[in-house]
Amino acid sequence: MIRVLVVDDEALVRSGLRMILEAAGDMVVVGEARDGDEAVSANTRLRPDVVLMDVRMPGTDGLTAGARLMAGPRAPKLIMLTTFDLDEYVHEALRVGAVGFLLKDTPPRDLAAAVRTVAAGHAMLSPTVTKRVISSFADRTPSRAEAARGRLATLTAREEDVIRAVARGLSNAEIGRELKLTEATVKAHVSRVLAKLNLANRVQAAILVHDADLG
């Protein structure tokens, strides 16, 4: 069972998310929190696999709490929730280590599928909503772009091919077909690239490529 912590300041929203997730059959909501402080405390106590957290909450908001969760000794997989599909806070959340975000009106089936994807260790980098947010709010100043290109210059040609494909939202299998590599080889390349660039996940890799104006 996938253990999920739901964080939202509205009780009705928390209740709805609980019903949707537990109806999926392979996940259980182990706790709820009303703000960021409660979320950090509940994460320590309950050790969920996935934290589903609202971006905007009174008191400690989701962005601040998300940074604290990612910096902790046992960081969960973090998905941010937002009412708006263009929310500047979401882009910053991706930078601190969240693996994606969902709109609150996401269909129940897609919500459950997203939690499964994240729990399995995959970033929620789709060519649609998540990538649109990255494109809309990435700060591509000349200095940032130059710094990003400098980091990417440490990669081999093949590694750069792989990270560009990651930035387009392709899965390992899709990258393998495109580059004529086995899925296992692609997985090894991705792991090596993330380690070499000191990146937490594929979403951060995509942001780096976009910052370099190569995506």
Rank of each mutant, 00 (worst) to 15 (best):
I79F: 10
V96M: 02
L94C: 04
K104I: 11
F101N: 05
E88I: 00
H91E: 12
L94K: 10
R95S: 13
T82I: 07
E88K: 12
F101I: 00
E92A: 13
F84D: 13
R95D: 14
D87N: 14
P108N: 03
V90S: 12
L94E: 09
L81F: 04
F84G: 08
K77C: 07
M80E: 04
L102D: 04
F84T: 09
D85R: 10
L94Y: 15
E88D: 14
R95T: 14
E92P: 01
L78P: 02
V90R: 06
G97C: 03
R95Q: 14
F84M: 11
P107W: 00
F101Q: 04
L78W: 00
G97M: 08
L102R: 07
R95E: 15
V96Q: 03
G100D: 00
T83I: 07
A98V: 00
I79W: 08
I79E: 05
P76N: 12
D110W: 00
D105N: 14
A98L: 02
I79L: 15
D87Q: 07
I79K: 12
H91K: 11
A98F: 04
K77H: 11
L103C: 12
P108F: 09
V99E: 12
I79Y: 03
G100F: 00
L94P: 11
L94D: 10
L81T: 05
T83N: 15
V99M: 13
P107M: 07
G97Y: 00
H91M: 06
V99W: 02
I79D: 06
V99P: 06
F84H: 15
R95K: 13
L94G: 05
V96H: 06
E88W: 08
T82N: 10
G97P: 08
P108D: 02
L81R: 02
L103Q: 09
P108E: 04
E92H: 04
R109T: 13
D85Y: 09
A98I: 02
K77Q: 14
D105M: 08
R109P: 06
R95N: 13
R109A: 15
I79A: 09
D85W: 01
P76Y: 05
D110P: 04
L78I: 06
M80I: 11
P76T: 03
P107L: 05
L86K: 14
Y89C: 11
E92C: 05
A98K: 01
V96G: 04
A93C: 05
E92V: 12
T83E: 13
Y89A: 13
D110F: 01
K104C: 08
H91T: 10
P76Q: 07
D110H: 07
P107S: 03
V96C: 09
G100P: 00
L103H: 08
L103P: 05
L81Q: 06
E92D: 13
E92I: 03
L86G: 13
D87H: 13
V90L: 08
G97A: 05
L78E: 10
T82M: 06
